[in-house]
Design a protein around this nucleic acid. Structure first.
Lengths: 211, 211
DNA sequence: ATAATAAGTTAGACATATCTAAAAATACAA
DNA sequence: TTGTATTTTTAGATATGTCTAACTTATTAT
């Protein structure tokens, strides 16, 4: 149920209402599984369910989801900061630890890390009441030629995207200047540092959030 | 299955062969549950099962159990040393974290802690190959009047025992002098420090391992 | 407006882990 | 040695979460 709620929340951030099928795809599960689980989530008051209607997460559902996301992101931060894992290694470990039921454990981790506001991929860490500070970032792919921006966060951080960025020496906080935007496919040429120019596809740039 | 194997190992340490009923009691589960799980463990080669015979753990079962116990004890140590939990708070959190499947995670924790040899209750931490260094401790209840000993480990560390010891200011490494042994019930009067004398029941002393 | 397509639901199967109740095997003791 | 008590096993139920196949409802496009 925690996994369902977390995924529902992730999809909700992109789009207010959620199609059962999309959730099924997102979770690598078949539609009937989602259908039956949604009814259970609805019984707990975490989603609103009406037959044949799209799924809507409730206020209490968001709060519950934020708890899990908080645990996930605090864990990722802990893994990077204290155990020196790379940002592309932490997700699958955090996926497991996020389900640990021990509030004091995460409180201590939070304290030890100095109450971080975002995780190693720049995603905000909800506070312990479930409140998330909105981020005002924009997509790199929406920037104009000539703009100088700082990489603040990643939109969806697949392991393969993280590896690609690491290979090109791109990390959170680095500055990027938009040098060229290709009309044909939206790929962007960026200046990374003095003599370092790189080209990123539109797909990649869609996932880089900058300011 | 991990929980079964861990419990089987714990009972095996006390007694080479294990009665199904004892395991059921130990795990707060009924006999038929154990019976069916034992067959699964046997299929994995972790225990030897013959109908109506007591359960025997195999070499590979011990190795597998040691992995889990290693994760449990490393976690307990991490919780005490890095997150400053008390020794009576760590068990229920470690019970959950021991099932995390991420060898690198525990390797890093181990490194961060400086490769500890025992957990906060003095129990040995198996190395990553499952080898456990035997401890040559004896029971406090087996000591003679006049002996001066150091508390090295606890036998079974229930939360209530830990709290009792904490209240009496007894911790690992503290020195104890056996002042009096009561014939009637085996309770022992101990000198803790200059003017501090305490009385512990035989039941408590059975669980205090000293050297 | 209706046919085709997509989305959602139901029914029934399977796997896991648990239980109770009852039967079978073993151990113990008079 | 035979009856009683204990231990173990089997059979069948329940709960959870998954699946496939078939059916129903909704959407879309001509």
């Amino acid at each position: 149920m925690e996994n369902y709620l977390k995924c529902i929340y992730n999809l909700y951030v992109q789009n207010d209402t959620i199609l059962l099928t999309d959730l099924a795809d997102y979770m690598n599960v078949k539609a009937p599984s989602v259908n039956s689980m949604i009814k259970k989530l609805a019984k707990n008051g975490w989603v609103k369910y009406e037959p044949y209607k799209p799924i809507k997460i409730t206020v209490s559902g968001k709060r519950r989801a934020a708890e899990i996301i908080r645990k996930h992101r605090l864990t990722e931060m802990f893994l990077c900061e204290m155990l020196e894992f790379r940002w592309d290694e932490v997700h699958h470990i955090a996926e497991q630890i996020e389900h640990i039921n021990a509030p004091e454990f995460f409180e201590r981790i939070d304290m030890l890390l100095g109450y971080p506001k975002s995780d190693p991929h720049g995603s905000p860490i909800p506070d312990k009441y479930g409140a998330i500070t909105a981020q005002a970032y924009k997509r790199l792919s929406d920037c104009a030629k000539g703009e100088l921006v700082t990489l603040k966060a990643l939109n969806r951080s697949d392991e393969s995207l993280l590896k690609l960025l690491t290979n090109k020496n791109i990390h959170l906080g680095c500055t990027l200047t938009v040098k060229e935007i290709e009309q044909y496919d939206g790929s962007i040429t960026l200046k990374l540092s003095d003599k370092v120019y790189i080209v990123l596809s539109k797909t990649v740039c869609d996932n880089l959030m900058v300011l």
